[in-house]
Write a protein that binds this DNA or RNA. Structure first.
Lengths: 231, 231
DNA sequence: TCAAAACAATTGGTCATGCCACTTGACCAT
DNA sequence: ATGGTCAAGTGGCATGACCAATTGTTTTGA
């Protein structure tokens, strides 16, 4: 049985939609002054607080401008493309990680401390021990990459890497994506991680960069082959 | 004479910012239920309508969910880029831009549209015309780089580049830093920008990458030589 | 005994009213 | 003309009240 969630659309939304419609259809032109809140309230048949709520919504939407003491005016409608705020695709994330983490790794090779190296080795241990439990294993994977980013000693880079991993964990798309990969038995290779550590241990930026690149690349490849075969 | 317009920030905005901050900093976790509107009003010291307006703003922003008769709940947050600790140094920003923007430029070379190319040329025009006024000139500079990031057609990358430039503009350190450079007459070279466009026009990723790298590198160099000589 | 129905408390949704601060424009004094 | 004053209009905010939906508790009935 299919049930739709009942949308008790709030009043202010209806009011806002009504005004917004008038603006879009050209009944109200740019620069026009809307009637005062009190008049609007009376004409639409709602209370002033409701009108205010609607106006705030419209203001946030960039449709009107509220000038205290003066009135409410229609804003110049900018055709501005929607800030494609919605979601970053899993492949976009992988591509970006390929770029940023590789360089972070190269930087880290020159700057990493012995303590941080030890932490990385510990993380590998975690991954080996808990390879059965995918959750914990992925946790360790993320920890590994974040540690390297921090070892680059560039706070902007580590902030970016952290953000990318949060995106990966959070995005619904990426989530189901990773879940599918996991089910297929594709998981981060411990050997690749060890190669990265080896490059860092000898403080060789070139090798470190390459190791990280091939690591992420292999993740991308297994992902895309999976999707291709799926079709 | 420079005068800034006084902004009388409305109360509900302050309330919304306060709540939003609490959520972002983790003081309020996702899924948590906020105190009731009446309690919030009393605790924050504003009236209930004001709280409601703030909640509407937060709901539109996708930070909270309002369930009639039940309460107000914090929604799953999309991760956000923000400086790890206390600020990001100007050199860190430059280093990171060197990495990210170079690759963004290489990607853009393969994916940029003719319209975007034209926009870039227009931006150069702006820079030439307004080369006297440093403010406008820098504005155009930023626009130029953001356009290239967008042309990479990777939303994660363009978000990062945008973030880096915002950091550059915001950070007090970077600000005084840039001010000093400006005073010394060091400003972005238009010729370098033209070389970048040329590489993009022939859709050559390698040349585009190199052009962008040398552009940012020269900025870094002039910056560090300046600091070195200063000491 | 226990599930269903009724109730009560809590919460958001809306309304009405009042007062304040700011804007604006008309009017007045200089 | 210039500037200063003032009143009307407008948005900003507070208060208090009532309604409707939700949720947990109590009562009821088989």
């Amino acid at each position: 049985m299919e049930l739709e969630t009942i949308k008790t659309e709030r009043l202010y939304v209806k009011v806002a939609e009504q005004i917004s419609k008038l603006v879009k259809e050209g009944n109200i032109k740019t620069g026009d002054k809307l009637p005062s809140e009190r008049v609007l309230a009376e004409r639409i048949g709602v209370s002033r607080p409701t009108i205010r709520e609607a106006m705030i919504a419209l203001e946030i939407a960039g449709i009107i401008e509220i000038r205290t003491g003066s009135g409410i005016y229609v804003i110049d409608q900018k055709p501005e493309l929607f800030p494609s705020d919605e979601g970053v695709g899993p492949f976009e994330i992988l591509d970006t990680r390929y770029i940023v983490e590789a360089e972070a790794c190269a930087l880290a090779a020159a700057r990493i401390t012995d303590e941080q190296l030890q932490e990385l080795r510990d993380t590998i241990k975690e991954m080996e021990e808990e390879e059965k439990r995918p959750d914990a294993s992925e946790q360790a994977d993320m920890k590994f990459h974040l540690l390297i980013a921090e070892a680059s000693q560039n706070s902007a880079i580590s902030a970016i890497v952290k953000w990318l991993w949060e995106l990966r964990n959070q995005s619904a798309l990426s989530k189901s994506f990773m879940a599918r990969l996991r089910k297929e038995g594709i998981h981060p290779s411990i050997n690749q991680h060890k190669r990265i550590i080896a490059a860092l241990e000898i403080r060789n930026p070139e090798k470190a960069r390459i190791a990280m690149k091939s690591h992420i690349e292999s993740a991308s490849e297994s992902a895309s082959t999976y999707f291709a075969s799926k079709k």
